[in-house]
Nucleic acid binder design. Structure first.
Length: 215
DNA sequence: GACCAGGCACATC
DNA sequence: GATGTGCATGGT
């Protein structure tokens, strides 16, 4: 039985070989990544894209414009992404934070020490661990590993974990066994999502899974 | 017409 | 501390 570090490296290599680079996060600006991270909570990405396109078309996909747009109007613009009343508030909560702490400057925000920023993000109502980490990794290019439903499903399906581990335990598995390179964490998470979408769903075995023969 | 999708906050036990 | 529930749209 190889150790965890070797298993994680092998998984990455197999997935990269099978799928190639995933080019996450699909966005034109840093701010768009952050908005997407909030809108995609428990929501299919195609629906998030519709919402983001509305925001682009109405030219409110900047911190200042989002600060100015009325809550009700914002909610209607993001309606396709689901939970739109909740998410409109969440976006406003983030904007309030951004202006209060960093005068609306994302680059100033990301100059904050990573774990200090993470703690602050988690205090925002509507931003939990996955959203905070997605912002840090995919918008801020910080070496933080993102855990999500797919990650958990893949690890369980391939018996790399047993039972239910909480978010931070799962995150430790990756962060204690891999080099802290943002690009590696970025690609690895994206590859796990890709695998989870296409495999690791059927039981007991998935046909042609890139990780077949791992265990 | 179920069931699901790149969660989170809050209530209740 | 664990478990349950509301939030809501659009695709399969």
């Amino acid at each position: 039985m190889p150790n965890l570090k070797e298993s994680l490296e092998e998984i990455y290599n197999k997935l990269f070989k099978a799928f190639g680079p995933q080019n996450w996060w699909p966005a034109e600006t840093t701010f768009e990544v952050i908005v997407g991270a909030i809108l995609t909570q428990n929501t299919a990405w195609v629906n998030v894209e519709k919402a983001i396109n509305h925001l682009k078309k109405e030219k409110v996909l900047t911190p200042l414009a989002l600060k100015k747009v009325p809550l009700k109007r914002l909610a209607l613009l993001i309606k396709p992404s689901g939970y739109y009343n909740q998410k409109a508030k969440k976006l406003k909560n983030f904007i309030d934070f951004l202006y209060k702490e960093y005068q609306g400057s994302l680059s100033k925000m990301f100059r904050e020490e990573t774990f200090t920023l993470r703690k602050k993000l988690l205090k925002i109502k509507g931003i939990g661990p996955e959203t905070a980490d997605s912002i840090l990794l995919y918008a801020g290019n910080k070496p933080i590993f993102v855990i999500d439903a797919y990650t958990r499903r893949v690890l369980l399906h391939h018996h790399l974990i047993e039972g239910k581990l909480d978010y931070s335990s799962l995150q430790k598995i990756f962060m204690q066994n891999l080099e802290h390179h943002p690009q590696l964490f970025n690609e690895y998470h994206a590859l796990l999502v890709r695998l989870g979408k296409e495999f690791c769903r059927a039981t007991p075995k998935c046909k042609d899974c890139p990780l077949e023969g791992l265990n």
